[in-house]
């Protein structure tokens, strides 16, 4: 039984037809809408590679039934730069080598953006590490990620 839903993704409204109600938000983004920046690492909520913002909150899109988010505002990695200008978190990840293979990176960046909107820019490194522990990096770029988070905070607080 076909289904339809509407998602506003990175500011653009998408009317989406589904063959049935099964697809997750992740599979809708990747396979139906063609936004493949969001990655599938485990499909079970155990790695964070699929992190997106739904109505401003970071969640694992692999454990979100797309139908259940009909009408939601979604922000993905494709939607965080301002034209050619990178988001401060993106810039900080490059500058501090906060990734290696890059596969977990969209999820890391979306998670960091979510974290900063939850916590403000409190600069306790332990809090940052804990707050980002839902994003596994198998290359273990963790030293760079921590530096990137601290740098991003500085950049963000400078902007505020």
């Amino acid at each position: 039984m076909t289904r339809s839903l509407t998602l506003t993704i990175n500011g653009t409204k998408h009317d989406i037809e589904l063959e049935d109600a099964r697809p997750t938000l992740l599979d809708v983004l990747r396979e139906r809408v063609g936004l493949t920046g969001t990655k599938k690492g485990c499909d079970r909520g155990q790695c964070g590679a699929c992190t997106v913002l739904v109505d401003g909150r970071r969640i694992n899109s692999c454990l979100a039934l797309a139908m259940s988010h009909d009408g939601a505002e979604i922000t993905t990695i494709e939607g965080v730069a301002d034209g050619e200008t990178l988001h401060p978190v993106q810039a900080a990840f490059i500058e501090n080598d906060g990734f290696q293979c890059g596969y977990c990176t969209p999820g890391q960046i979306m998670s960091a953006i979510g974290l900063f909107s939850e916590n403000g820019t409190a600069n306790d490194p332990e809090q940052l590490r804990e707050g980002m522990s839902g994003n596994i990096c198998r290359c273990a770029a963790y030293a760079g990620i921590t530096e990137a988070l601290l740098d991003a905070q500085t950049r963000l607080s400078g902007k505020e």
């Binding site: 454990l63 979100a64 998670s111």
Partner: peptide, 9 residues
């Protein structure tokens, strides 16, 4: 418990 993403959902 879990991760921030899971707690948010």
């Amino acid at each position: 418990g879990a991760s921030a993403q899971l707690r948010n959902a």
